[in-house]
Structure formats: C-alpha cells, structure tokens
Design a protein around this nucleic acid. Structure first.
Length: 146
RNA sequence: GCUGCAGGCUGUGCUAUCGGGUUGCCUUUUGGCGAUCAGGAAAGUCCGGACAGCACAGGGCAACGCACCGGUGAAUAGCCGGGUCCCGCUUCAGGCGGGAACAGAUAGUGCCACAGAAAAUAACUACUCUGCUUUGCAGGGAAAAGGUGAAAACGUGAGGUAAGAGCUCACGGUCUUCCUGGGUAAUCAGGAUCACGGGUAAACCUUGCGUGCUGAAAUGCCACGUAAACCAGCGUAAAAGGACGGCCCGUUCGAAUGUGCCGGUUACAACCGGUACUGCGUUGGAGGGUGGGCAGAAGGAGGCCUUGAGCAAUCAAGGUCCCAGAUAAAUGAUAGCAGCCUCGCCUCAGGCAAGGUUACAGAAUCCGGCUUAUAAGCCUGCAGCUUUU
RNA sequence: UGGCCUAUAGUAUAAUGGUAGUACGACAGAUUUUGGUUCUGUUUGUCGAGGUUCGAAUCCUCGUAGGCCAA
C-alpha cells in the first residue's frame, strides 16, 4: 500500500533566495483568514536541480507564516501553523497530481491574516476553496514538459 | 461544614487511524521495522556562572556593582541560621506573624516648598539689664514660655540667676570610647567615661571590598572569491603612525592605488601643491557547478532512590537511569474509552441523563538562582460565618 | 539570541522632589437668519503594584505595554 498523505521535509520551502523571489514576483489568492503567495514555473527549484532525483524533490513546496503582531504568544503562532499544515496535508494531493501531469513546479507560502484563533473545520473549508482556485489557475498554464 | 486570603505540591491517562523532527538496524529505487520527542515556569531577561575569542610586566584614574554577623554554594543581588530595628495581633513577663536597599549625616557640598520669628552657629512677641529723656527708641543678655510645621535645638524635678540656660545636681534617654562576663561573630547584660545644635546618602558623595573587555549572530576548521594578487613559515633593516575593546604612563605591532605633517582652497570636507616615511630575499600552499557545510551543540555544578553528617540551606558515600534537539525551524489532527469537573432527576447505598476536558503557557549554547503567570485537585496556616457539644 | 530606550488628557508636548501645565480636539454658552470665524467657560491625565521621603510624574524595586539596535 502506497502512502499518499505524507508531508516530509522535501515538500517544505526552505531556500531563502526562493522565498525572497516568491514575495517579490509571486501572485496572491486571498480567502478570509488565509492569503496565499504562489509562483508557478518549470524547473522552479533549479538551484538543486541535478540533485533532484537524489533528494526526491516534489513538484510542490510550501511554507507558513503568522505575524507576531497579531499573535504575541508563541503558543498561538505554533498552533496556527500546525492547523494550517494539517489542513494542507489532507488536501494537497489533487494539486500535486495536476502539477505532475503538467510538468510544472509550484512554490507556495500561506500567510494567516486574521486576528482570531482558527477552528480546524472552518479552516479546512477555506483551504479547499483556495486550492481549487489555484488548480483553476494551473489549468490555464502551458504544459511544461514540451 | 462553607467562604475568602497566603504559601507549597501535582498539574490527565490509554487505544485506534492519518502525519512530523531526531536517531538505530535492514534494504538500498520507492521503502520497512523499532527507539525517542516539549515546561514548572521552556516566559520575563532581573542576577550569577560555565564556555569561547581578544587583550594582559606592573601601576594609577575613571566606570560599574556590593554593604549587620556566621554558614552554604562555581557564584558580591540567591539560600539557611542568628542578631538589631520597625509594623501588626494578642497581651502586660512575654508570645505569634510579617518586613528591612540595617557601612557613614562628627569628612565635605547641596536641598528642606507652604506656614513659621527662626529650617541650622535661630531673637518676632513676651522676659530682663544699661543708656537716652520715657505710651517709646537704641545697645546688649537670654533658648525657659508662645504659635507654625513632617521636623524646633535631650526629657522631668530641684538648685541657680537681673532674667535665663546641662550652667550645676538627681533620675531617665540617646551616643563615643574602654573594662568585665556570655557568644566564632553581629551583639547582649553590667559598670566606668565623653558628648548631646534636626532630617535627607532609593541627593552628590566618603569609606571598605570586588570586577580586563566582548558575547554562541562568540569562536575554530573546511569550502568559496581574488591571480603582477592572496595565505603561511623563515632571515635581516627601518619609523611617520597604529593597537592594547574607556583613558594615561608604559608595552607592543608596524605599510604604497598608502599614511602623517605643512600650505592653499572650502562653511566643513573633497580637491591642489610641497615635504617626510617606505622591502627585499627565500620556501611552501592553493581552480567544476549549486548550496554554504561541519564543529561549538545535548553526559550535565544531571535526575531519581537509600544511608550518613548538619537546627537548616547544603554536603558526602553507594546504587540506578540517559531524559527533546531544529535552523522558514518537529513535538500535530480526528475519533472513542477511562478519570476529573459542572448542572439536573430519582433517592441518600448508589444509579440515570446532559455538557465540558480546560489554567498559565512552546525549547533554540548550557546550567544555578530570582521574579511574574497559573483552571482543577490535595496539603498547611490565618480570618469570617454557621451547626453541635 | 544579546543589548538599549520610552510610557503624562482623545492627540502632540512641558513641568530644579513642593498646587500637574500649554496647544489642538470634544462639549456648553455668547455673537450670527444659519454655518464658519471669533470670544468665554467646562471636561478629561502622570502605564500598574510596592517602597524611600514630611511630601513622588520625578528617586528605587518588580511587573505590563510599546519601540529601537546588532546577521
């Protein structure tokens, strides 16, 4: 039986350069408590391209941010990151399949913009909406494998 | 029994499904099987250290910190015990609880609003003496009386005097020095002696003691970059200047697309001119890209148990355990059960049904202390109310 | 992670340890047909808790907020 809901280190957005480029050039999708910066390209993670097979890089990389101005306590910020990450983990597979089919790579960064602590269920619905929007955007892109 | 306050301890467990960090073994293409994974404060950053780098012959100044005594500890803000003083309660001897930044105001300087005669070598009223020429004025004496104020020049009584005054005496208070006794000491008891013109050092300051400076974004190694370059070692020559992490004596280092000095220019610089200084030899090292990587950095002033020493803090011995470790940063999500809590009903043995599962809060070099936050339960103390005796 | 600073009225900003001011704002009144301008008056404050002192915005300690610096 093949695992499909995993979320390992290779799917995390860890390059400082790429994150800076994402906030500089990336586009956004907003749904009430979440704001998504995204960047779609082929061979986006080319920095480590030759070792892609070695490190098994995914077509998706993501990160999460919570402003310390809205949540002063570290406990609350950690809680929000965990809830957002769990929600993304459960719903990312459709997007991953689409990206692989198109041969594109996507860098994403979620920003939590509300001032209130989230409920998991309502946040899960919002995540579904935001990922569907991203899929629609992806549909219009060219096939990257040509 | 209930309520409130203060202090202390604990501060949920198990199972299933899906995930994550670190790590061991197997397989090595995917992967599989294990182990382990947040706190008492991880917080505030108020202190002390460990550790690291740089500096360091020695001395002086500055700056900062500490301040009753003894013990403890790696540690000068901790902790334990004791003393002194203050506050509260009870009471009268005394006891209980709480607090103290408890060196110095006779080393000096400053400040003490308003009120008051006067706020620190005090004369306004009243008192008293002398002179004037007399409802008073002038010059003294005198801190006893007045009222002000947070604070008024040791207190009470007697003597004394023109009036008064520690001026003298008795009793008492504070204080300096000394003696005797108890105590390691702070200090206590008794005695003698000197003095008694305020407060403020969390005003400047003085005295004694202590501190080299900078912090893991420290630091070391590798990689990268540069090619008439760079790095390292050795030999020998020289001085404008630099460094010594606040400064000086002093010590030390010591160069070319450069530095210092002088003049011009300029608001100041830049800039221009002059002048001074000056290293050469030899040996060795060192080319793919991307990303930076590794160490520091997880075994420690460690936890738990037992015994012993000590009033205690704490220490010693023995046994046992290994107990988070990242770098856009893991420790999570969902469901069920148990336990706990709240409310209701039947009934006082318990049963049934509903809801909640929570407080404060998340490691980033580590450790010790302090401070602050904390639902619920338990323990101790104090206060109040009620019931029974 | 380490270091430093600030907090005064709704806002900005003063005050050698001695009655907390000033400006703008807000409110009320006057002037005006009405509004504005102008004039008069009122309102509101030392971040919190302790301590030193006769007396604290000021000095000290502990907290609470906010800001700044160092890759």
């Amino acid at each position: 039986m093949k695992k499909q809901f995993t979320l390992g280190k290779n799917e995390r957005l860890k390059s400082r350069k790429l994150i800076e480029r994402l906030f500089r050039e990336g586009k956004t999708i907003s749904t009430n408590p979440l704001k998504l910066y995204y960047l779609i390209d082929r061979e986006l993670f080319v920095g480590s391209n030759r070792e892609r097979t070695k490190f098994k890089l995914s077509n998706l990389q993501f990160g999460i941010g919570v402003g310390a101005k809205f949540f002063r306590k570290a406990v609350d910020r950690n809680r929000i990151k965990r809830v957002v990450r769990e929600s993304y983990r459960q719903q990312k597979n459709a997007l991953l399949a689409k990206a692989k089919e198109k041969g594109l790579e996507i860098a994403m960064f979620f920003i939590y913009t509300s001032k209130e602590l989230p409920e998991f269920r309502s946040l899960n619905q919002k995540m579904e909406i935001i990922l569907n929007k991203l899929m629609a955007v992806l549909e219009t892109k060219e096939d990257g494998r040509k």
